[in-house]
């Protein structure tokens, strides 16, 4: 029995990812999630074509209107069309999520490889990561945005930095396990150099967990961006993002709760889909990696 399990985990990455696409293997949830996510992405990409109004055009006469034929989801406090703003807002949110994931993974993998392979560097790096983990991420993020100003770049940086230690820990643990594998020792015996062992034998081991972790980071980055904007420490309020739209809705919550609820719903669908796909990827890539890295 154990041999069967092991050979499933031994298959090359591409083969294991393929098994994720087959609904017979994983159930319907990831499938539906993928379709929902695709819909959200298409909606935001083609938002200029789909939008019924100019998302920035104010109309003092049409403030805080409920949904109607002219305004699918009603209007906000400046009379702007909520639907048009919402689908445009997704663009920035998704962009921030993807950028944060790429940067966090890049930094994390590099630092994690070094920490996992070189004992001396390990102690120092891991203490620094412990320190970063100890600081509540939202506090670092709002602190950084408050200091650096509300640009997209500083928001991405603020979201990325707290994610890095988790990636580092994950990569390090993968490297620590993998370097004990006989095939790595065999490679040493075969005269392979340290960089070759690091990048050709150990790095590929981190790919599967990184794909999974990457999806989780995208999801959590989208949430954090919304949170930052909601607290008034996000991207400049002139740019509609899901967080900004909802933040503006706070003061009108009793009059028109839709300003918070609709973008919130779309955001939840988007993040939920990404999380479900992450879970499916995890199950397909590594049956042993059951626990979510928290």
């Amino acid at each position: 029995m154990t041999n069967i399990d092991r050979s499933a985990a031994d298959k090359p990455l591409a083969l294991r990812l393929l098994s994720m696409v087959s609904p017979a293997q994983t159930g319907l949830a990831p499938f539906i999630a993928a379709i929902m996510l695709l819909a959200v992405i298409l909606l935001t990409i083609f938002s200029p074509q789909i939008a019924t109004h100019d998302p920035l055009a104010m109309d003092p006469l049409m403030r805080l209107k409920p949904p109607s034929e002219a305004h699918l989801l009603g209007t906000d406090g400046y009379g702007r069309d909520l639907f048009s703003r919402m689908i445009l807002g997704g663009r920035i949110s998704l962009l921030i999520g993807i950028c944060a994931a790429v940067v966090a993974l890049g930094l994390g993998v590099l630092i994690g490889l070094v920490a996992g392979y070189f004992r001396l560097a390990d102690a120092i790096i891991m203490r620094a990561m412990d320190a970063l983990m100890a600081m509540p991420s939202i506090l670092i993020a709002i602190g950084l945005v408050a200091l650096n100003g509300p640009s997209i770049g500083s928001v991405i940086m603020a979201i990325t930095i707290p994610e890095v230690p988790r990636v580092v820990r994950l990569v390090r643990s993968v490297v620590l396990t993998a370097r004990e594998e006989p095939y790595v020792e065999a490679a040493m015996a075969l005269g392979s150099s340290t960089p070759k062992i690091l990048f050709q034998h150990l790095l590929p081991n981190t790919m599967a967990p990184m794909i999974v972790q990457g999806t989780y980071i995208i999801a959590s980055a989208i949430l954090t961006e919304a949170l930052l904007s909601f607290l008034g420490a996000g991207i400049s309020t002139e740019i509609p993002t899901w967080g900004n739209i909802m933040a503006e809705g706070r003061q009108y919550f009793r009059i028109n709760p839709g300003i918070i609820l609709w973008p919130g719903l779309l955001l939840t669908i988007c993040v939920l889909s990404i999380n479900l796909i992450g879970d499916a990827a995890r199950d397909a890539l590594d049956p042993r990696m059951k626990k979510r890295q928290a």
Binding site: N3, R6, S7, A9, D10, K11, P12, L13, E181, P182, Y183, E185, A186, A187, A189, L190, G191, S192, S193, K196, H201, P204, N205
Partner: peptide
């Protein structure tokens, strides 16, 4: 060297050709 566990002594992500030529190429 040849190790005990045949399931772990070859890199699962490498083809047999790549594993076997690793040493000579070095």
């Amino acid at each position: 060297v040849v190790f005990q566990d045949p399931f772990r002594s070859l890199n699962p992500r490498w083809t047999i050709a790549r594993s076997m030529t690793e040493g000579p190429l070095n």
